[in-house]
Structure formats: C-alpha cells, structure tokens
C-alpha cells in the first residue's frame, strides 16, 4: 500500500456528474425493485372488509415495480453509453480485462484486501474503482441483463408496446414462465448479495485508506497522494507519446 501523506493529498476529480447520477438513481430503483419484487412474490396478509373494487394495492405495487424497472433499464443503457464517452474512470476499459496487467492488479487487490498480506507492487492503487471491483461490476452487468431480459419476458404478454414485446421469446426459450420467474429471483438475490458486499467494501476502503471513498460518490472528488497523482500524469504522458509515435 502506498504510504499516503496526509499533508500532500491532492484532489482528484473521479466521478463525473452523470456517473454519480446514474449510481444513485440505480441504487434507489434497485431498492424499490427488490422491495416491490418481494412484495409481489409473497404479499403480506392484509385483512379488509372493503370490496375489491375499492382497493388496488397489489396493482399499485406491481405498477411501481414496472415503472422502476423502466427507469432501471434506461438508466442502465445510459451508463453503457457513458462507458464510451466518459472519463477514464468511467470507461468500459476499467471494467473489462483486456490484458494480463488487469489480472495482475486483481491478484494484487485480493492479496491486500482479502488475504491481508503485503504486496510490494503498488499497481492496484487507483483513484477509480480497483481492478477487482471493475471485474465484479462487469459481472453485474450480465446479472442486470438477466434481470432485464427475464423481467421483460414475463411482462411481454401483458404489454402492447413493442419494447417489452421484443422479449416474447424468453419464456418459450426457457420452457415457461415458471422457469423465467425462477431465474428472475436468482438474479435478484445475486444483486442483493452484491449490494451488501459493495456497501461494506466502500466503507472498508474509506476506513483503511482515508481517500474519501464514500464521499466521492456524492461530490466526485477523491484525495490521493501527490506521488500517485504525478505517477498517473507521467503514465498518461507516456501513453500520448506512444500514440504520437504510432
């Protein structure tokens, strides 16, 4: 781990506004989706002497689930787009391993944060998310896709709009709604487990490294040592030079 110097911390702008907005919208709709999802799967027993025509509780819960799902989908699509136009911390390259160094960095993260042994290379330390986190987010990309595809698959037949209807093939492929529903549940649980671990690790990094990990998702800034900032600057210069040579 880099010896950070409290006096020589520099502000680094990491998370652009669109990334932060994406993150919090995503967090909010996921909470709503999970809560309404469990409600729909197993609604609580509510006793009432009202006529059915006076109430629409289940209908509203489902409605909120569907509306949140749409927000989730378009927010997700927006983030994919931002992976191509955003800054280097938001770039798809920080999620998808394209070279062996990526895996070296992952190993380094595992050593330091999970096995808690010393690692001499400082490569893993970055202002953006570390290599391991990047790979896990990339995995979550697929889990989200599974949720979206199975969700629209179940929804398709109730809808008159072309977008959900495009997923009409899903139940036919998996052998019926029961299976699709099952997969939708599994994807939900993976998302829940991810969220729990994610929140914990953010706090852990904030605690151990003191770089402002938690607040960075609000303001966008992290505080990195001067050494780190200079090091990355140099790296970028080198990259530019290489490109010019080519």
């Amino acid at each position: 781990m880099q010896k950070s110097n409290a006096s020589n911390l520099k502000r680094v702008f990491v998370w652009e506004l669109p990334v932060r907005v994406y993150h919090w919208v995503n967090a909010l709709v996921l909470v709503v989706l999970v809560a309404t999802g469990f409600w729909i799967a197993n609604p609580p027993a509510i006793q009432s002497s009202d006529e059915a025509s006076l109430r629409y509780l289940m209908g509203w819960v489902r409605h909120i689930h569907f509306v949140s799902a749409y927000i989730f989908v378009f927010n997700f699509i927006f983030r994919l787009y931002w992976g191509f136009v955003g800054n280097r911390y938001a770039s798809w390259k920080s999620f998808i391993p394209t070279n062996i160094h990526f895996f070296e960095r992952i190993w380094s993260v595992l050593k330091v944060d999970i096995l808690m042994i010393k690692d001499k290379r400082k490569g893993y330390h970055t202002a953006g998310h570390n290599a391991m986190a990047g790979l896990v987010y990339f995995g979550m990309f697929f889990v989200f896709m599974v949720s979206i595809v199975t969700g629209f698959g179940l929804y398709a037949d109730m809808s008159t709009w072309f977008l959900p209807q495009m997923f009409d093939w899903v139940p036919h492929m998996f052998g019926g709604d029961a299976q699709v529903r099952h997969i939708h549940h599994v994807a939900t649980w993976v998302t829940i487990l991810f969220t729990v671990v994610h929140v914990y690790l953010v706090m852990y990094h904030d605690y151990v490294e003191g770089n402002g990990e938690v607040s960075s998702m609000f303001g966008g800034w992290k505080f990195m040592s001067e050494g780190y900032v200079e090091h990355t600057k140099e790296q970028q210069k080198n990259k530019k030079k290489k490109k010019e040579l080519v």
Binding site: L57, M58, V61
Partner: peptide
Amino acid sequence: RPYFDAGLFVE
C-alpha cells in the same frame, strides 16, 4: 383477478 389486484388473498 380483482381480488388479486386489490391485495385480498385466501391465506
């Protein structure tokens, strides 16, 4: 179905 939408279920 109206009972379903209303959230009124046989327990």
